[in-house]
Design a protein around this nucleic acid. Structure first.
Lengths: 196, 196
DNA sequence: GCATTTTTCGACTAAGAGTCGAAAAACAGG
DNA sequence: CCTGTTTTTCGACTCTTAGTCGAAAAATGC
């Protein structure tokens, strides 16, 4: 009963690594069990299906990302910086994970999509709180905060996920962010620095 | 050489229907050839892989959708209505295709994604032209048109694709559309009617 | 009518997900 | 330390699917 927990975690960690390296679809259960040195049956003793395992792996990722976002929220940064900081912390890419673009490869849409979905759900309330803070400080002025936050997230995901974005994308993104939250022009200009 | 063309088209049409009904991943090559009453080898005489066939099927869809969008652009509607009309014509769902949500099912992300990707690429220039028209008429005022159009598309896809959107989503969407293009408040209010 | 090209066939391979019954380990309680 | 019970492990097997290939059949051109 103790041993089981360890084994499961071990498998999740192997899968995490492999999924990131080669993608979900391209990682076979056989590859996972070979790496772990166990038999097929053992794997299926711990996971009902491969996809269910993916869910758990994603859960692990979300956990880490959300924690990072929480840190940013509690930091003493100015509100606009907090918001962008949280959004930036979302990219599951980044150094921490040894991805080299695996997530964005077309084969990985399923995984990518699931991650983004859950990540948005987890992070939207945090962002909403930051926006409320901004409203209290008179920096922002808007209603329907949750919806606005969601749209900003959607746009940032689509715009910045693949590295292919231009100067002009950034300009429009900044403009949009300011207008979405009813901020004064220039409030979000600092984004330009961050990105380059 | 003539016969081949017909057969290929026949296969594409069968696949189109099946992909829509049951999704891409869930439609096996065997299912397609059975329906067509041909042998495996014949299928692979016309298509290199199943995924390459998907590309062609998607090509067909894009064709149709883009044509619809072009019609709207040339119609005598007011510019804002044109824009929303084009966006609305994008949903590959709709009556014409007997989908019952197959596209949005998680298994179908790959197909869904590919469609949206290509559809956006094809339709962005059309929308951009509509926006320019609006600018010429003094209804809109903005720069970086293509980027703004792309963001509007992204948001509308994410917001309205699954049926799960609220009154407030619509409100924010309208607000965003107006501000994105520098239109007077109220310009896009008509969207509310369309949706319900 | 015959040679060439296009189209069709279907048995076969390979790979991967998931099943299952039974063996081995770990863990009681006495 | 033995013995019955539960947890964990094993690996051969099934089933499904994409994709291959060589050869037959059909169409085409001369």
């Amino acid at each position: 009963m103790k041993k089981g927990e360890r084994r499961k975690k071990e498998l999740l960690e192997i899968a995490y690594r492999l999924f990131l390296q080669k993608g979900y679809e391209e990682t076979s259960v056989d590859a996972i069990i070979e790496e772990a040195g166990i038999a097929k049956g053992t794997y299926y003793y711990y996971f009902e299906t491969k996809e269910q395992m993916l869910e758990e792996v994603i859960g692990m990722m979300i956990e880490a990302e959300t924690e990072a976002a929480r840190q940013v929220l509690q930091s003493p940064l100015p509100v606009p910086q907090k918001i962008i900081g949280i959004i930036a912390s979302l990219r599951p890419s980044r150094e921490e994970a040894p991805i080299e673009g695996a997530l964005m490869r077309p084969e990985n849409v399923l995984m990518h999509r699931k991650i983004l979905q859950k990540l948005s759900d987890a992070v939207t309330p945090l962002l909403a709180r930051a926006v409320e803070e901004g409203i209290a400080q008179g920096i922002f002025a808007c209603d329907n905060i949750a919806e606005r936050v969601r749209m900003l997230l959607v746009v940032s995901n689509e715009t910045f996920d693949q590295g292919r974005f231009t100067e002009r994308d950034v300009a429009v993104f900044i403009d949009m962010a300011e207008k979405l939250f009813g901020a004064k022009p220039g409030t979000m200009d600092f984004i330009r620095e961050l990105i380059r």
